[in-house]
Design a protein around this nucleic acid. Structure first.
Lengths: 339, 339
DNA sequence: TTGTAAGCGTTATCAC
DNA sequence: GTGATAACGCTTACAA
């Protein structure tokens, strides 16, 4: 039906030049109202669509950002992406999604591919194993805005949007203490990732604030799945003085722990309370709903997008912004002794 | 550090012409091995990156597809997108994600925006409320491949990838019958959407196959959330002859139903069995795990991507492909009477 | 095998 | 206010 209508086509029809058409379409002040109207109308009539590719090539701006996450189908990241998309879409930006599968090499490849694609910015969460930072510097060298959300590395010139993981760990632990728990265990991911380290520090802070001695046999670094939770509980319960609560940095580990505890005939929350982290959807659907620290991923995505937009506008200025959102503890049955 | 290196820069340095550089870079056969090598090396040395925008403008191919889903942070759709991404990424395609929020107008706007962006194809799942088809025809008129996954409309020229919803409904219902259930209720979404209609037809087929009379008071069209499930059970249990099983087209409704049944003191699965649809992650995490029909969304995404790729290759030919994947029933505690 | 030149669809900088 | 024209970075007939 309608094959590619260009400004030349509409120029020809109106016996004017393409430049004039362009000006009319872009609301350039130097143009008579009459021709503007004429152009607008015929453009609509001919079903003209601007070729964004040409505009992008000319302007050097593609109006597209790249978003890189470990896995797109994890609720936390999917929600962040939704936040980004909702904030950027109205500003005319498109969002290209990429996954790293927690593989550093894939992360590097993805970034290079993206840089290759005339992207206007990169918003990302690094993998659990990322060591080198050279690929991030590539981005900065090209002058394109780079924003980390959640999982970050501290690199000069890179803005970050995170939650206060320390506070999340602190709140969770404090809550357990206030529920009367005396021997609180903690499972975490690799401390090389700041988020896990921070949650752990928050945990320690709460303990010390309440004068509870920190015991390193109560702390374990594990994978983030239910089996890891089961294993952790098995080990914890074999201790001479087993814990009576668990603050886990992962909801999946918390779930596995609960399953194992039930197997062992331990009453939850009476004899053992549990708090997880991330507020995964399943935590609230369980019959024994699981307390968890909510990270408000949607808001995190929106903030990351806003930081990007600011950075695009104050073009020259190299602002390095560190946004820290507050987590909120969702208290549910797994840690509520008296109601 | 490295400002935009173009083929002209590398041509200048080598005292050859940009065309030659282009040929060398593209493995064009008409070029001497020596200059190719030379070009390749200096290109690498100068850290040359091809400007995809220019290529896209020249070739009319952007190597980008648009993916439209109701919500990106719903597990089902996130997994589909993951499948699409994993299939398309190695072929050099990027994926732009858009959400409709189940709003037909947003769907139209999104499609137009995408058409505006020199996209190579659109892969999508329509909203629950989409009535008109004119915006889809716009896509076809522009000769750009359109592929529906899961939720579709029957439009000539549009390929679709769906699961056999009829079979899903049939399997679920048959399973309940074989578990000894005699009075099986069904909750569904709006029958205007084929997927719901088909599941319902499968349900009826299983009933009739086993000589169980169909009763329309056992069928209810509802929203897809837990509250709807609670309401449905409340109504069902007030019937003179209440059902002893539920096949729901939504896991959330199934969950709400189970919650309400427990409140009412009904034993599950002994006195009332439940099967949901979609195999949402939470269904298997519950203590009383919920049987559900798995739609294999990852595979659905991959298939949709492959259909798109085929369509891109056999350019001229207008193939209209209908791929139907098989669902698989995940049998869990909510419907297993004897084990 | 390599160079020349046109063109992809815009926008911006000059002139007039 | 409008028209020429160059430029964005690349590919590709067509010549040489």
């Amino acid at each position: 039906m309608n094959e590619k209508v260009t400004i030349y086509d509409i120029a020809k029809k109106l016996n004017i030049t393409a430049a004039t058409v362009s000006r009319a379409l872009n609301n350039n002040p130097k143009i008579s109202e009459s021709t503007r109207k004429l152009v607008m109308e015929t453009a609509a009539a001919m079903n003209y669509k601007q070729n964004k590719l040409a505009v992008a090539l000319k302007s050097g701006k593609s109006n597209t950002v790249g978003v890189i996450v470990p896995y797109i189908d994890r609720n936390f990241f999917a929600s962040i992406i939704r936040g980004i998309e909702e904030e950027l879409d109205p500003m005319g930006y498109h969002t290209i999604i990429c996954q790293t599968h927690e593989d550093e090499q894939k992360e590097k490849d993805t970034i290079n591919a993206l840089l290759n694609t005339q992207i206007d910015g990169i918003l990302m969460s690094i993998t659990k194993v990322t060591q080198s930072t050279s690929h991030f510097r590539n981005v900065l060298n090209k002058q394109i805005p780079l924003i980390f959300f959640d999982r970050k590395k501290n690199i000069p010139g890179v803005s970050t949007v995170t939650i206060n993981d320390f506070d999340g760990g602190y709140q969770a632990t404090k809550h357990l203490i206030e529920q009367g728990c005396k021997r609180i265990a903690h499972t975490s991911g690799d401390f090389a990732l700041e988020i896990y380290k921070d949650r752990f520090e928050g945990y320690k802070e709460a303990l010390s604030e309440y004068g509870i001695p920190f015991k390193k046999e109560y702390v374990m670094q594990t994978r983030s799945d239910t089996d890891a939770g089961k294993d952790a509980i098995t080990k914890f319960m074999k201790l001479p003085n087993p814990p009576d609560a668990l603050f886990s940095s992962s909801d999946y580990v918390a779930l596995g722990a609960i399953q194992k505890l039930k197997e062992l005939g331990v009453n939850i929350p009476e004899d053992f309370s549990v708090v997880g982290f991330s507020n995964e959807p399943f935590t609230k659907f369980m019959e024994l709903s699981i307390s968890s620290v909510d990270q408000n991923p949607m808001e995190m995505g929106k903030m990351a997008a806003r930081v990007f937009l600011e950075q695009m506008n104050d073009s020259g200025v190299k602002i390095e912004k560190k946004v820290i959102l507050s987590p909120s503890l969702m208290i549910r049955k797994s840690s509520t002794k008296n109601d």
